[in-house]
């Protein structure tokens, strides 16, 4: 009797759990799927029946978003900025991380602190002097200015992340290579870099998503629509002449999210692991 009661209780508990998870999943998925459906509707349909399915689904909204919403150009700009930034970071960050965790040198402690401190500083605080700096360098409203700023502000996290990896490599490996006559440079190139490649890939993916999604710097530094990256172009599209064209905006939002969602589907594990590191980095 009693055990049967316990069994039923257990079943009920599991059922309650399943329902809770289902409700949370719906809350998480619903806004995204609503946007997906809306992107195939007309504005008339949207206002008459916000929950209705499109009676005659077309790609017209997507074409409009690319054509008149400048989304195509913005995607190209974002790709240039993101790829250039992660390329520079992927070369510089592992070098610095390796040096600060595996080589003894003067002022190592101070240098390490300088390299990492940026992770704890809000870039928002320095927007004014940063804009003045870019203006003095003649880099306002250029993709180059955006790329360099992104590199500077993303390096601290990348270095912190890579350091955790280099510290975990046994020092005997380095010592034996040293005795074999390798300089620090060739040791880095021939031993450390190949070992670090998976970690570099993780950093590059996380940095790509972060740079791709970054709104703040583009919002402050870019002026002409031909230079806009995706997030600022999105905002420009939704507040401009097409401010009431919600279905075309939905299509633009979907287009903007495709690259990062694809990356997430491909590298979910890596991305979550890398992002979870932020908690340990502090």
């Amino acid at each position: 009797m009693l055990s049967q009661k316990a069994k039923i209780m257990k079943r009920l508990k599991l059922l309650a759990l399943a329902i809770t998870l289902l409700i949370i999943s719906i809350i998480m998925i619903y806004p995204l799927s609503w946007t997906l459906i809306t992107a195939f509707k007309t504005n008339r349909e949207l206002f008459l029946d916000p929950w209705g399915l499109p009676s005659n689904p077309t790609f017209e909204n997507f074409i409009k978003a690319v054509d008149r919403g400048n989304m195509g150009q913005a995607m190209i700009n974002s790709l240039i900025v993101s790829l250039s930034s992660i390329f520079i970071i992927s070369i510089i960050a592992p070098m610095a991380a390796y040096a600060t965790s595996r080589i003894d040198f003067k002022f190592k402690g101070a240098v390490t602190n300088l390299l990492i401190a940026g992770f704890f500083i809000a870039p928002h605080a320095v927007l004014v002097p940063l804009l003045i700096l870019l203006r003095d360098m003649g880099l306002v409203d250029t993709l180059l200015g955006l790329i360099l700023s992104h590199v500077g502000w993303h390096l601290p996290f990348a270095i912190l992340f890579m350091k955790a990896f280099f510290v975990s490599i046994p020092s005997s490996l380095q010592d034996s290579a040293r005795v074999d006559g390798l300089s620090y440079y060739s040791m880095y190139r021939k031993i450390m870099l190949p070992l670090a490649l998976p970690t570099i890939l993780t950093v590059a993916i996380i940095m790509f998503i972060s740079v791709w999604n970054n709104f703040l710097f583009a919002f402050i530094f870019l002026r002409s629509p031909s230079n806009f990256t995706v997030p600022i172009n999105l905002l420009n599209f939704t507040t401009g002449r097409y401010g009431n064209d919600y279905v075309a905006q939905s299509a633009a939002v979907l287009i903007s999210a495709i690259p990062t969602i694809v990356l997430y589907l491909l590298f979910a594990e890596r991305i979550r692991k890398g992002v979870a590191f932020m908690a340990f980095g502090r």
Partner: peptide, 21 residues
Amino acid sequence: AGLILTLPALAFVTIFVFYPL
């Protein structure tokens, strides 16, 4: 080697983080 390998990163961080700060 230690200083040379950290130099590029140090340059970026100095120019774009600490100088504006």
